[in-house]
Simulated scan of single mutants.
Amino acid sequence: MPFWKALTATLLLALLAGCSTVRLVESDVRSYTQWPASRQPGTFTFERLPSQQANAEAQAKIERLALPALEKAGFRLAEQGRGEVTIQVGLGQTYYDRAPWDDPYPWHPWGGLYYGRGLRPGWGMGLSWSMPSPYYVFDAAVLIRDAKTQQVLYESHARHDGRWADDPIRAALFEAAMKDFPLPAVNPRRVRIEIPRDAGNAAAPASGASAPAP
C-alpha cells in the first residue's frame, strides 16, 4: 500500500475513534461458581471485612459502584434485615508514574538532514524528550456466600489496566466480574464493557482503595 494511502487510513481510524460516543473497558476476568442451577439471585446484604469496616466511607463508595452490576445480575439489596446471600466487594487501585509501554530512556539524541527557514537544507544534532504517562491497575473482586450456611457460592475477579481512572471505569470492572453469573466460564477470559465516553472525569493520581475480597 502506498505510504500516503496508509497514512490516510490511519488518520481516518483515529478520527473515527475520537468521534466514538463510548469507551471500551477491557478486563481480564476469572470466575468460580458453586451456585445451584435452580437457585435464583434473590436478596443480599453487603458484608465487610475488618479492614473495610475500618474505612467505612471508602468501602461504601465501592459498594455503590458495584450495586448496578449486582442488580443487573438479578440481585436486590435487602432493605431490612439480612438478605438470602451476603456479598463482599473489593477494589484495589495502583498508580504508576510511567506506563509499561513508555520508553525507559526518555532522552534521545537525534541528528540528520533538516530543512530550515527558506527550505534551505542543513544538518542538526540535539536531544528529544518523550513524556511519561500515568498508568493505573485495578483489581475488583466479588465474593457471594449463602447467608445461612456461609458456603461460598460464587467468586469472581476482574483486572483492568490503562491510562484513565474514573468511577465509570471502576463500575465497569464489577460489571465485567458479574458478566457470566452464575454460569461457569473460561478462565481467564477477556471481557469488554462499553461505557459512555462523556461519563465521569479522569481522576488525579491516587493510591489504592480497600483490598479486594478474598
Rank of each mutant, 00 (worst) to 15 (best):
M1W: 08
F3P: 07
K5Q: 15
T8I: 12
A9D: 10
A9P: 04
L12I: 11
L16M: 15
V25C: 03
E26Y: 02
V29C: 00
S31L: 13
S31P: 04
Y32P: 00
T33V: 00
Q34C: 07
W35P: 01
P36F: 09
S38L: 05
G42S: 08
F44G: 04
F44M: 01
F44S: 10
F46C: 10
L49Y: 14
S51C: 10
S51Y: 05
S51D: 09
Q52A: 13
N55V: 13
K61D: 09
I62Q: 02
E63W: 07
R64I: 12
R64T: 13
R64Y: 07
P68M: 07
E71C: 06
E71V: 06
K72Q: 15
R76S: 14
A78V: 05
A78N: 11
G83T: 03
I87Y: 04
Q88K: 08
G90N: 01
L91R: 00
L91W: 06
L91T: 00
T94H: 13
Y95A: 05
D97R: 12
R98Q: 15
W107A: 10
W107N: 07
P109E: 02
P109Y: 07
L113M: 07
Y114F: 13
G116S: 03
R117I: 13
R120F: 08
W123D: 08
G124L: 09
G124F: 02
M125V: 15
W129P: 05
P132V: 13
P134E: 02
P134T: 03
Y135R: 01
V137Q: 08
F138H: 05
F138M: 08
F138K: 01
D139W: 04
D139Y: 01
A140D: 01
V142A: 01
L143I: 02
I144S: 02
R145S: 14
D146V: 01
D146C: 03
A147T: 06
K148L: 15
K148I: 14
K148A: 14
T149S: 14
Q151M: 11
L153Q: 06
S156V: 00
A158H: 03
A158Y: 05
A158T: 03
A158E: 04
D161E: 12
W164C: 08
D167L: 11
P168T: 09
R170W: 09
R170E: 15
A172N: 02
M178S: 04
M178D: 05
K179Q: 15
F181N: 03
L183S: 10
V186P: 03
V186K: 12
R190A: 13
R192L: 11
I193D: 02
I193G: 02
E194R: 14
E194M: 07
P196S: 06
P196V: 03
D198Y: 10
A199E: 04
G200K: 05
N201I: 11
N201M: 12
A202L: 06
A202Y: 05
A204L: 15
A206K: 12
A211D: 09
A211H: 08
P214F: 08
